[in-house]
Measured scan of single mutants.
Amino acid sequence: KFGRVHERAEGPAKILAIGTATPFHWVDQSSYPDYYFRVTNSDHLVDLKEKFRRICNRTMISKRHMFLTEEILQKNPNLCSHNEPSFDVRQDILVSEIPKLGKEAVLMAIDEWAQPKSKITHLVFCTRSGVDMPGADYQLIKLLGLSPSVQRVMMYQQGCFAGGTMLRLAKDLAENNKGARVLVVCAESSAIGFRGPSEDHPDNLIAQALFGDGAAALIIGSDPKMGLERPIFEIVTTAQTFVPNGDCHLALHLREMGLTFHCTKDVPPTIAKNVESCLIKAFEPLGISDWNSIFWILHPGGNAIVDQVESTLGLEPNKLQATRNILREYGNLSSACVLFILDEIRKKSGREGLKTSGDGLDLGVLLSFGPGLTIETVVLR
């Protein structure tokens, strides 16, 4: 008597548009150690500064975009301390800036989509910054002038794996609601975790050397309108798992001094060791076991992770080039990073006149991972 209210779509979910945005301000990685130790009044920690310089040199990052300028840091000195309470200051900045950054990426996506924004039916927003109620999803709806009846899902504090999570959720929403057009937004800022150095917490140096700011937005829907919408990728399958006891290797915690970062040297080999089982589960039903026969979007948690995944799986050097390019130009953008790589690989395919948006290949994989050593596996066509 009370059956399904919403009719299912006929076809699989497809990515119809991609937009990205970054803050205008950026830092050069080669000179960042001098800048970082100067603005945090830590130049007296000579040995720690040299250690940080070595870490920065190993990241293979060229530059990173950041909202925090020297002027902002001078006005808010607690942000430059390692342990002073600064959460309220971070909140005041990020509750406002995260939706604005997301808006810039959304406008780029809508411009490519070339359809009225009134056709957006759902919003899925993800960030690890600016936790608030009502959330960044609500603020973004107002900034864009979208209908208050847009169906919203707000996900805070997920971390680097969440780019894949957003695709998984959007696929379910698009395929189970005929005519749905799902706006996916990942907006991230390193301002939540920026803090001064400490000899007692070397993990913090890794975070300060890796993370950048950026937002990515996608429009996802099934059954694209012929002649009006141009699909870029099809989302074939999605899956999530985590490595048992992985939280002892990688975890982040909200504290009075901001978001703290805990990471062990076992993260790269542990991820590399567990990736292939995810690939087998995803691609065995499709008859694929040659990992060089697919295109790759791999989250660059750090250069060591990229190198070890490449080595463990025997990947050809060009397979992870898009990942390395984004890491070099932006650093680790947390949940937004794989979506930047997705954009990079389709643009490169277009520039080179390849037959598909995925490096000329039919199928590919998007792998994202993060806290708890959670792994998201997304098969794309």
Rank of each mutant, 00 (worst) to 15 (best):
S293W: 07
F87V: 14
E256K: 12
D359Q: 08
M108P: 04
M60E: 01
M257Q: 15
F295T: 05
V306K: 04
V131N: 15
P148Q: 07
D137Y: 05
I72L: 09
T270W: 13
Q321A: 07
D290E: 09
D266W: 08
I15V: 03
F52V: 03
T238D: 07
H44P: 00
F369A: 14
A336Q: 04
C263R: 14
V106S: 14
A336P: 10
L252S: 14
L373P: 15
C56L: 05
M133K: 04
S277R: 09
A239F: 00
T377V: 00
G360D: 08
Q308L: 09
N76Q: 08
F24R: 13
L366Y: 06
F37T: 07
L313W: 06
L363A: 14
L342K: 15
V275L: 15
K103M: 11
I110C: 05
C248Q: 13
V365W: 13
V243G: 10
S349F: 09
Q29A: 04
E70G: 02
F37G: 09
C263Y: 06
P33A: 12
G11S: 02
L228D: 02
K63A: 03
I235L: 04
L298F: 07
K1F: 15
W291F: 00
S349Y: 15
S31F: 12
Q139H: 06
T323H: 01
N292E: 00
Q115W: 03
E329N: 01
Q240G: 01
I271S: 05
L79T: 01
G350Y: 13
L298V: 13
S118F: 07
I288F: 01
L380Q: 15
G246V: 02
D132T: 02
T238I: 03
G360C: 05
Q139T: 04
K1R: 07
G258R: 04
R255Y: 06
L144R: 02
D362W: 00
A322P: 15
L140W: 08
V106L: 10
L363E: 14
P269Q: 11
G11K: 15
C263L: 13
I93V: 09
E344N: 01
S334M: 02
L363P: 15
H122C: 03
I15E: 00
A251G: 13
G287V: 02
P269G: 02
R58D: 11
G350S: 06
Q240C: 00
A105S: 05
W113D: 02
K63L: 05
H299G: 14
V338D: 13
G353E: 11
H82S: 01
E329C: 08
A9Y: 10
Q308H: 10
S42N: 06
A105V: 08
E234V: 12
I120A: 07
D307V: 01
F37R: 13
I341D: 11
H44R: 12
D362C: 00
Q240V: 11
P116Q: 10
P269S: 11
N274R: 08
T237R: 10
L327H: 07
T237H: 05
E234C: 13
T127V: 04
E344G: 02
D111W: 05
D266Y: 07
Q321S: 03
L363Q: 15
S334Q: 13
L380W: 03
Y36R: 00
I18G: 00
Q91R: 14
T260D: 15
H82K: 14
V378H: 15
H262G: 14
P85H: 05
Y35V: 02
S277N: 15
H65D: 07
L354Q: 12
A272L: 13
L228M: 15
I98L: 13
N332R: 10
V365R: 15
L94V: 10
G11Y: 04
S31W: 05
T312V: 11
G287A: 10
H25C: 08
E310L: 07
K51N: 08
P231W: 02
E234P: 00
Y32G: 06
P268S: 11
G301C: 12
S129P: 14
H122N: 06
I235E: 01
M60V: 09
K281Y: 03
E352W: 06
T323D: 00
Y138L: 15
W291E: 03
V27N: 00
K355G: 03
S357Q: 04
H253Q: 14
S349K: 08
I18T: 02
F295R: 04
F233W: 03
I72Q: 01
V378D: 15
L380S: 15
I297F: 06
P269H: 12
E329Y: 00
G301E: 15
Q29N: 07
G11T: 05
V106R: 04
L94A: 11
S149E: 06
W26K: 10
Q91N: 00
L16I: 09
F233Y: 12
H6V: 11
H44L: 08
A272M: 10
D137N: 12
E310R: 04
R381Y: 04
G246Y: 01
K273C: 10
I110Y: 05
M66F: 14
V309G: 05
I141H: 04
D47K: 00
A251P: 15
L313F: 12
K1G: 10
N57C: 05
Q29I: 10
T69V: 04
L327I: 06
I55P: 00
E256R: 08
S311W: 09
F37W: 10
Q115K: 05
S30P: 00
L144F: 08
K281W: 03
V338F: 00
L250H: 15
A105Q: 01
E376T: 01
P23S: 11
R53W: 01
M66K: 12
I280R: 11
G360L: 02
K347G: 02
Q321H: 09
P85T: 09
P300T: 03
H82A: 05
E112M: 05
C263Q: 05
T356M: 14
A239S: 14
H122D: 05
F52Q: 08
A272I: 09
L45N: 11
N303D: 09
E310V: 07
D28E: 04
A272N: 00
R128W: 15
L228Q: 06
N57G: 10
V236W: 12
D247V: 06
R351V: 04
Y32C: 08
S277I: 07
C80F: 07
D290L: 02
E112P: 04
G145P: 01
E97W: 09
T69W: 11
I15K: 06
N83F: 15
K319G: 02
V365N: 14
T264Y: 13
V89K: 14
A9D: 07
S62K: 14
A105G: 06
D28A: 06
L361N: 04
T22G: 06
R38G: 09
Q74S: 03
N325A: 06
H249V: 08
S62A: 12
K355F: 01
G372M: 13
L16E: 05
L16V: 02
Y330D: 01
S289K: 12
S129A: 13
D362G: 01
L315S: 11
T377W: 01
P231T: 13
K14F: 15
H122S: 05
L101W: 09
